[in-house]
Protein backbone atom coordinates (compact mmCIF):
# COMPACT_ATOMS: atom_id res chain seq x y z
CA UNK A 1 0.00 0.00 0.00
CA UNK A 2 1.44 3.33 -1.04
CA UNK A 3 2.43 5.55 1.86
CA UNK A 4 0.43 3.60 4.39
CA UNK A 5 2.97 4.66 6.98
CA UNK A 6 2.48 8.30 6.12
CA UNK A 7 2.99 10.50 9.17
CA UNK A 8 -0.06 12.51 8.12
CA UNK A 9 -2.28 9.51 8.85
CA UNK A 10 -0.93 9.27 12.38
CA UNK A 11 -1.63 12.96 12.92
CA UNK A 12 -5.14 12.40 11.53
CA UNK A 13 -5.62 9.55 13.95
CA UNK A 14 -4.13 11.39 16.90
CA UNK A 15 -6.43 14.42 16.72
CA UNK A 16 -9.77 12.68 17.42
CA UNK A 17 -8.24 10.10 19.73
CA UNK A 18 -6.58 12.73 21.92
CA UNK A 19 -9.83 14.67 21.91
CA UNK A 20 -11.78 11.64 23.11
CA UNK A 21 -9.16 10.80 25.71
CA UNK A 22 -9.30 14.35 27.08
CA UNK A 23 -13.08 14.71 27.09
CA UNK A 24 -14.31 11.17 27.68
CA UNK A 25 -11.58 8.99 29.20
CA UNK A 26 -10.36 11.71 31.55
CA UNK A 27 -13.86 12.55 32.84
CA UNK A 28 -14.56 8.85 33.41
CA UNK A 29 -11.31 8.48 35.37
CA UNK A 30 -11.98 11.70 37.24
CA UNK A 31 -15.41 10.47 38.18
CA UNK A 32 -13.93 7.29 39.64
CA UNK A 33 -11.40 9.41 41.55
CA UNK A 34 -14.19 11.52 43.02
CA UNK A 35 -16.05 8.40 44.09
CA UNK A 36 -13.14 7.64 46.42
CA UNK A 37 -13.01 11.11 47.93
CA UNK A 38 -15.00 13.36 50.16
CA UNK A 39 -15.99 16.05 47.67
CA UNK A 40 -17.87 19.13 48.83
CA UNK A 41 -18.85 22.41 47.23
CA UNK A 42 -15.80 23.91 48.91
CA UNK A 43 -13.14 21.60 47.48
CA UNK A 44 -14.79 20.61 44.19
CA UNK A 45 -12.23 22.38 41.99
CA UNK A 46 -9.08 21.51 43.92
CA UNK A 47 -7.26 18.19 43.74
CA UNK A 48 -6.39 18.21 47.44
CA UNK A 49 -9.40 16.34 48.71
CA UNK A 50 -9.49 13.79 51.50
CA UNK A 51 -9.63 10.19 50.34
CA UNK A 52 -12.28 8.18 52.10
CA UNK A 53 -11.61 4.78 50.57
CA UNK A 54 -14.78 2.93 49.75
CA UNK A 55 -16.99 4.90 52.17
CA UNK A 56 -19.09 6.38 49.35
CA UNK A 57 -19.67 2.92 47.91
CA UNK A 58 -20.59 1.58 51.33
CA UNK A 59 -23.11 4.36 51.80
CA UNK A 60 -24.57 3.83 48.33
CA UNK A 61 -24.92 0.08 48.79
CA UNK A 62 -26.56 0.59 52.17
CA UNK A 63 -29.14 2.95 50.70
CA UNK A 64 -32.42 1.11 50.00
CA UNK A 65 -33.26 3.77 47.39
CA UNK A 66 -30.14 2.83 45.47
CA UNK A 67 -31.17 -0.80 45.36
CA UNK A 68 -34.57 0.27 44.12
CA UNK A 69 -33.06 2.49 41.42
CA UNK A 70 -30.56 -0.19 40.37
CA UNK A 71 -33.44 -2.65 39.99
CA UNK A 72 -35.42 -0.01 38.05
CA UNK A 73 -32.46 0.48 35.70
CA UNK A 74 -32.13 -3.24 35.09
CA UNK A 75 -35.89 -3.62 34.51
CA UNK A 76 -35.93 -0.57 32.22
CA UNK A 77 -33.03 -1.92 30.16
CA UNK A 78 -34.34 -5.49 30.05
CA UNK A 79 -37.84 -4.38 29.02
CA UNK A 80 -36.36 -2.13 26.33
CA UNK A 81 -34.14 -4.88 24.97
CA UNK A 82 -36.98 -7.40 24.83
CA UNK A 83 -39.58 -5.01 23.42
CA UNK A 84 -37.30 -3.28 20.92
CA UNK A 85 -35.86 -6.58 19.66
CA UNK A 86 -39.25 -8.29 19.52
CA UNK A 87 -41.18 -5.46 17.91
CA UNK A 88 -38.17 -4.41 15.83
CA UNK A 89 -37.80 -7.93 14.43
CA UNK A 90 -41.51 -8.22 13.66
CA UNK A 91 -41.57 -4.84 11.91
CA UNK A 92 -38.33 -5.60 10.05
CA UNK A 93 -39.80 -8.92 8.83
CA UNK A 94 -42.93 -7.14 7.66
CA UNK A 95 -40.84 -4.65 5.72
CA UNK A 96 -38.69 -7.41 4.21
CA UNK A 97 -41.62 -8.17 1.88
CA UNK A 98 -41.81 -6.43 -1.47
CA UNK A 99 -44.46 -3.79 -1.98
CA UNK A 100 -44.59 -0.25 -3.37
CA UNK A 101 -43.10 2.34 -1.02
CA UNK A 102 -41.54 -0.22 1.32
CA UNK A 103 -38.19 1.54 1.77
CA UNK A 104 -39.71 4.97 2.19
CA UNK A 105 -42.29 3.82 4.73
CA UNK A 106 -39.77 1.83 6.72
CA UNK A 107 -37.38 4.78 6.81
CA UNK A 108 -40.17 7.12 7.84
CA UNK A 109 -40.45 5.35 11.20
CA UNK A 110 -37.00 6.71 12.04
CA UNK A 111 -38.61 10.16 12.42
CA UNK A 112 -39.42 9.13 16.01
CA UNK A 113 -35.78 8.33 16.72
CA UNK A 114 -34.59 11.61 15.21
CA UNK A 115 -36.45 13.74 17.77
CA UNK A 116 -34.53 15.10 20.76
CA UNK A 117 -35.06 12.80 23.76
CA UNK A 118 -36.22 15.73 25.83
CA UNK A 119 -38.96 16.55 23.30
CA UNK A 120 -40.01 12.88 23.26
CA UNK A 121 -40.29 13.01 27.05
CA UNK A 122 -42.36 16.21 26.97
CA UNK A 123 -44.57 14.80 24.22
CA UNK A 124 -45.25 11.54 26.06
CA UNK A 125 -45.91 13.39 29.28
CA UNK A 126 -48.71 15.11 27.39
CA UNK A 127 -49.95 11.89 25.74
CA UNK A 128 -50.01 10.22 29.17
CA UNK A 129 -51.68 13.16 30.96
CA UNK A 130 -54.31 11.79 33.31
CA UNK A 131 -57.13 14.21 32.65
CA UNK A 132 -56.74 15.48 29.12
CA UNK A 133 -54.26 13.00 27.64
CA UNK A 134 -55.17 11.28 24.41
CA UNK A 135 -54.11 7.84 25.67
CA UNK A 136 -56.58 7.88 28.54
CA UNK A 137 -59.21 9.11 26.11
CA UNK A 138 -58.44 6.18 23.80
CA UNK A 139 -58.69 3.57 26.56
CA UNK A 140 -61.60 5.36 28.22
CA UNK A 141 -60.29 5.34 31.77
CA UNK A 142 -58.36 7.97 33.79
CA UNK A 143 -55.16 6.02 34.49
CA UNK A 144 -52.42 7.83 36.44
CA UNK A 145 -49.64 6.74 34.10
CA UNK A 146 -46.97 8.96 35.58
CA UNK A 147 -48.23 9.69 39.08
CA UNK A 148 -48.89 6.08 40.11
CA UNK A 149 -45.63 4.59 41.48
CA UNK A 150 -46.61 1.14 40.22
CA UNK A 151 -47.04 2.41 36.64
CA UNK A 152 -44.48 5.17 36.17
CA UNK A 153 -41.58 2.89 35.20
CA UNK A 154 -43.76 1.08 32.69
CA UNK A 155 -44.88 4.43 31.25
CA UNK A 156 -41.36 5.77 30.71
CA UNK A 157 -40.44 2.36 29.27
CA UNK A 158 -43.26 2.58 26.72
CA UNK A 159 -42.12 6.05 25.68
CA UNK A 160 -38.51 4.90 25.36
CA UNK A 161 -39.44 1.82 23.34
CA UNK A 162 -41.37 4.09 20.95
CA UNK A 163 -38.32 6.33 20.72
CA UNK A 164 -35.69 3.60 20.23
CA UNK A 165 -37.49 0.81 18.35
CA UNK A 166 -37.18 2.35 14.85
CA UNK A 167 -33.39 2.46 15.16
CA UNK A 168 -33.23 -1.14 16.34
CA UNK A 169 -35.61 -2.15 13.54
CA UNK A 170 -33.45 -0.48 10.88
CA UNK A 171 -30.38 -2.35 12.12
CA UNK A 172 -32.27 -5.67 12.16
CA UNK A 173 -33.58 -4.91 8.65
CA UNK A 174 -30.03 -4.44 7.42
CA UNK A 175 -29.04 -7.78 8.90
CA UNK A 176 -32.08 -9.44 7.28
CA UNK A 177 -31.12 -8.25 3.80
CA UNK A 178 -27.66 -9.73 4.39
CA UNK A 179 -29.02 -13.29 4.63
CA UNK A 180 -28.39 -15.20 1.39
CA UNK A 181 -31.50 -16.42 -0.48
CA UNK A 182 -30.31 -19.92 -1.42
CA UNK A 183 -31.23 -21.64 1.86
CA UNK A 184 -34.77 -20.27 1.56
CA UNK A 185 -35.14 -21.58 -1.98
CA UNK A 186 -33.84 -24.98 -0.93
CA UNK A 187 -36.14 -25.05 2.09
CA UNK A 188 -39.14 -24.04 -0.02
CA UNK A 189 -38.37 -26.92 -2.40
CA UNK A 190 -38.19 -29.27 0.58
CA UNK A 191 -41.64 -28.06 1.63
CA UNK A 192 -40.68 -26.02 4.70
CA UNK A 193 -43.40 -23.57 5.75
CA UNK A 194 -42.81 -19.92 6.68
CA UNK A 195 -42.60 -20.68 10.42
CA UNK A 196 -40.03 -23.41 9.86
CA UNK A 197 -38.04 -21.19 7.52
CA UNK A 198 -38.01 -18.45 10.15
CA UNK A 199 -37.09 -20.84 12.93
CA UNK A 200 -34.35 -22.75 11.11
CA UNK A 201 -32.91 -20.21 8.65
CA UNK A 202 -33.72 -16.62 9.58
CA UNK A 203 -33.25 -16.77 13.34
CA UNK A 204 -29.90 -18.61 13.35
CA UNK A 205 -28.58 -16.29 10.63
CA UNK A 206 -29.69 -13.24 12.59
CA UNK A 207 -28.31 -14.34 15.95
CA UNK A 208 -25.03 -12.39 15.93
CA UNK A 209 -26.77 -9.24 14.66
CA UNK A 210 -29.52 -9.54 17.28
CA UNK A 211 -26.89 -9.88 20.00
CA UNK A 212 -25.10 -6.76 18.72
CA UNK A 213 -28.38 -4.83 18.58
CA UNK A 214 -29.27 -6.00 22.10
CA UNK A 215 -25.93 -4.62 23.30
CA UNK A 216 -26.58 -1.31 21.55
CA UNK A 217 -30.07 -1.04 23.06
CA UNK A 218 -28.57 -1.71 26.49
CA UNK A 219 -25.94 0.97 25.98
CA UNK A 220 -28.49 3.50 24.73
CA UNK A 221 -31.07 2.83 27.42
CA UNK A 222 -28.50 2.87 30.21
CA UNK A 223 -27.92 6.42 28.99
CA UNK A 224 -31.57 7.49 29.19
CA UNK A 225 -31.77 10.70 31.12
CA UNK A 226 -33.54 13.47 29.19
CA UNK A 227 -36.67 11.44 28.51
CA UNK A 228 -37.22 10.33 32.11
CA UNK A 229 -36.15 13.71 33.48
CA UNK A 230 -38.85 15.38 31.37
CA UNK A 231 -41.57 12.81 32.03
CA UNK A 232 -41.34 12.06 35.74
CA UNK A 233 -38.06 13.42 37.09
CA UNK A 234 -37.52 9.87 38.36
CA UNK A 235 -40.57 9.99 40.60
CA UNK A 236 -42.89 9.50 42.24
CA UNK A 237 -40.74 8.20 45.12
CA UNK A 238 -37.93 7.11 42.76
CA UNK A 239 -40.35 4.64 41.17
CA UNK A 240 -39.15 5.56 37.68
CA UNK A 241 -35.63 6.63 38.63
CA UNK A 242 -32.59 5.16 36.88
CA UNK A 243 -28.87 5.28 37.70
CA UNK A 244 -27.76 8.31 35.61
CA UNK A 245 -30.65 10.42 36.89
CA UNK A 246 -30.15 9.25 40.49
CA UNK A 247 -26.47 10.13 40.25
CA UNK A 248 -27.32 13.53 38.76
CA UNK A 249 -29.73 14.27 41.63
CA UNK A 250 -27.10 13.52 44.28
CA UNK A 251 -24.54 15.64 42.47
CA UNK A 252 -26.45 18.65 41.23
CA UNK A 253 -29.36 18.83 43.63
CA UNK A 254 -27.86 17.62 46.92
CA UNK A 255 -24.21 18.50 46.10
CA UNK A 256 -23.08 15.11 47.38
CA UNK A 257 -20.50 14.69 44.65
CA UNK A 258 -18.77 11.59 46.01
CA UNK A 259 -22.05 9.71 46.29
CA UNK A 260 -23.14 10.80 42.81
CA UNK A 261 -19.80 9.65 41.43
CA UNK A 262 -20.01 6.28 43.21
CA UNK A 263 -23.47 5.68 41.73
CA UNK A 264 -22.03 6.61 38.34
CA UNK A 265 -19.30 3.99 38.71
CA UNK A 266 -21.90 1.24 38.97
CA UNK A 267 -23.47 2.43 35.73
CA UNK A 268 -20.02 2.64 34.10
CA UNK A 269 -19.32 -0.98 34.94
CA UNK A 270 -22.57 -2.11 33.41
CA UNK A 271 -22.11 -0.21 30.12
CA UNK A 272 -18.44 -1.14 30.00
CA UNK A 273 -19.19 -4.85 30.31
CA UNK A 274 -21.92 -4.64 27.67
CA UNK A 275 -19.67 -2.62 25.36
CA UNK A 276 -17.00 -5.32 25.63
CA UNK A 277 -19.59 -7.91 24.63
CA UNK A 278 -20.67 -5.67 21.73
CA UNK A 279 -17.13 -5.19 20.41
CA UNK A 280 -16.49 -8.91 20.81
CA UNK A 281 -19.65 -9.71 18.82
CA UNK A 282 -18.67 -7.31 16.04
CA UNK A 283 -15.17 -8.78 15.85
CA UNK A 284 -16.45 -12.31 15.61
CA UNK A 285 -18.91 -11.33 12.93
CA UNK A 286 -16.16 -9.57 10.97
CA UNK A 287 -13.97 -12.69 11.12
CA UNK A 288 -16.70 -15.07 9.97
Amino acid sequence: MVGSRSPLLFVFLAIPILYLLALVAFPVAYNILMSLQDVTLGNITSFARPFVGLDNYREVLGDPDFRKVLLNSLLFVAANVIAQLGIGLAVALFFSQRFPGVHFLRGLLLAAWMLPALVVGALWKWLFATQYGVINFAIGSPVHWLADPSLSLASVTIANVWFGMPFSMILISAALTGIPLEPYEAAALDGAGPVQRFRYITLPALRPALLAVACLITIYTMRAFDLIFAMTGGGPLDSSNVLPLFSYQFTFQQFRFGIGAAIGTFAFFIVFAVALLYVHTLRREAVE
Partner: peptide
Protein backbone atom coordinates in the same frame (compact mmCIF):
# COMPACT_ATOMS: atom_id res chain seq x y z
CA UNK B 1 -7.59 3.17 18.75
CA UNK B 2 -10.68 1.60 17.22
CA UNK B 3 -11.33 -0.33 20.40
CA UNK B 4 -10.94 2.89 22.40
CA UNK B 5 -13.41 4.70 20.14
CA UNK B 6 -15.99 1.95 20.46
CA UNK B 7 -15.62 1.90 24.23
CA UNK B 8 -15.59 5.67 24.66
CA UNK B 9 -18.92 6.13 22.92
CA UNK B 10 -20.86 4.23 25.55
CA UNK B 11 -20.63 6.41 28.65
CA UNK B 12 -23.85 8.21 29.58
CA UNK B 13 -23.36 11.97 29.37
CA UNK B 14 -25.34 12.60 32.53
CA UNK B 15 -22.59 10.74 34.38
CA UNK B 16 -19.82 12.80 32.82
CA UNK B 17 -21.53 16.08 33.64
CA UNK B 18 -19.69 16.66 36.93
CA UNK B 19 -16.17 16.12 35.55
CA UNK B 20 -17.14 18.25 32.54
CA UNK B 21 -18.31 20.97 34.90
CA UNK B 22 -14.98 20.89 36.72
CA UNK B 23 -12.93 20.83 33.51
CA UNK B 24 -14.73 23.82 32.05
CA UNK B 25 -14.70 25.70 35.34
CA UNK B 26 -10.94 25.15 35.40
Amino acid sequence: ALFAVLMLQVFPDALLATPMFIIFKF
